Structure formats: C-alpha cells, structure tokens
Amino acid sequence: METTMTEKQAHDRVEDYVRAAFEALPRTASRTLFSQNRSECTDPTDGGPPGRFEISVTYEITGVQVAAFGEQFDAVVTWWRAHGFTVVTDRRPTDQYVFVRNASDSFDMSIQANELGKLYLGATSPCVWPNGVPEAAGEPAETAMASAPEPEPAPKPQPRPRRAAVDDEDFGETNWSDGGTAF
C-alpha cells in the first residue's frame, strides 16, 4: 500500500494553503478559526482502504465589506489559479461559493459567503494515514503508530479521484452560525 504524508503534515499544509490564499485579501481582512476536522475517509470512490483521514480547517474572514465580496472572490480564485488549483465548482453569481482542487497534491480549498454576510475560507487534505504508513492488519491505530518507523519526508500525494465536493449534497444547507468541531 502507498505511504502518505502524516496527519500532522496534512494539517500543516491545509493551514499553509489558507494562510497563503488569505494574503490575496485586503489588509483590513482578518481570520478567525471556525473549525478543524479530522474525518475518516469512508468514500470508496477514492480507491483506497479504510483507516485514512482527511484533515480540514475553515476560517471565518472578517474586515471585508459584503459589497466587496465579489472582488475578494476574484482575488482568491486568481491566487488559486496561479498556484496550481483548478476550479471544480463555481456557483457565482447565484451563490457565493467556489471550490477548487490542486492537481499536484489533491488538496481542496473553498471560499463561501452566506446570506448573513459571513465569509469563509477553508482547505481539506486528501486521505492520509495517521502516521503516513498503512496500519498492520488488525493492529489498532495507536499500536501501529507507536511501532511504525519514523516516516521518510512526506511523499508527494498522487492525485486520484475523490468524492464530489460537499456542496453538491449539503454544503449550502450547513448552519454556519454554529461553531466547528475540534481537531
């Protein structure tokens, strides 16, 4: 089975992507952590075994006028395109939502505004093994992580099919006034 980056490396990369894309926004903008998630990869469409996780972070962006959301979306999309991301879903102007995927490492990002005038920027990793290596058959994750050798530097993830963007099912129905879950 293929090795992956570790969960820690995936978390660091989603944070780095958000931090870098955030720089495309005006100096008046600030960001506050909205949610951090570790979700088990249970979708069979990515062709991989169970026991892997997606790591994601979402930030609420403040300090940007609602009337300027359109130009801020354009600035972030321009940054994404210049950094290897491809637009997968762009629901503008009907909805203020754009979802992208990086072809070289399969990380996803999104920007969304809601009818309450809130703006969110987030990133999600591809499926990764907790310690970068598959667990031994029948061995609990904690044991596998404790006995696994220190992984080599993170290999470059191979792009592979992943589940459809969450927005296609229920993203628009999400209650963004609730807090996120802890990582």
Rank of each mutant, 00 (worst) to 15 (best):
H11C: 08
E173D: 08
S177R: 04
F183G: 14
F183T: 05
A75M: 11
Y17W: 05
A10D: 08
G47L: 10
E2W: 10
D170R: 04
L121H: 03
P26G: 10
V64I: 15
P44R: 02
Y97R: 05
R91N: 10
L119W: 02
A123M: 10
P153W: 08
R31H: 11
D105H: 09
P155E: 13
T174V: 10
R13Y: 10
Q96V: 03
A113G: 14
T174S: 04
A165R: 01
A146C: 08
C127I: 12
A82H: 06
G172R: 00
L33I: 06
R163D: 01
L116S: 03
G179Q: 06
A165S: 09
K156D: 07
E60W: 01
I111P: 01
D12H: 12
S56M: 10
Q158N: 05
E2F: 08
E169Q: 03
M109E: 07
E152A: 15
E142F: 15
L121F: 01
G122C: 04
D167K: 01
Q65T: 03
A164N: 05
A82T: 08
W79Y: 14
C41K: 08
V98T: 04
R31V: 07
F22C: 14
K8A: 11
N37A: 13
T89H: 06
T143G: 06
A144W: 12
R13W: 09
S104Y: 06
M5C: 13
A141G: 12
E115H: 09
F73D: 08
A146V: 04
L116T: 00
A144S: 15
G51K: 09
T6H: 07
T32R: 15
V87L: 06
K8R: 11
R163P: 02
K118N: 15
R91H: 09
P153D: 03
D74Y: 00
T45A: 00
E173A: 09
S110E: 11
F22P: 13
V87Q: 05
H11G: 12
K8P: 00
Q65D: 13
P161V: 07
W176D: 03
R31I: 12
S147C: 09
E115V: 07
A154K: 05
M109V: 00
P130A: 12
T181P: 01
T78W: 02
M1G: 15
S104F: 07
F53H: 07
A113T: 03
P155S: 13
F34M: 11
T28E: 14
W80V: 04
T45H: 00
G138N: 13
N175F: 00
W80P: 01
T62G: 13
E135A: 15
E7S: 12
L25W: 06
T42G: 08
R92Q: 15
T6L: 06
D74P: 07
Q72P: 02
F183I: 04
G63Q: 09
Y59E: 10
L33H: 01
P93K: 12
S125V: 09
G47F: 12
P157N: 03
I111F: 01
W80D: 13
I61E: 02
M109W: 00
G48M: 07
H11T: 10
W79F: 07
T58A: 14
A123D: 07
K156V: 14
T143M: 15
Y120E: 01
N175D: 15
V133C: 14
E40K: 07
V18A: 05
L119E: 02
G63Y: 06
G51L: 13
R31E: 12
L116P: 01
R160E: 05
W80Q: 06
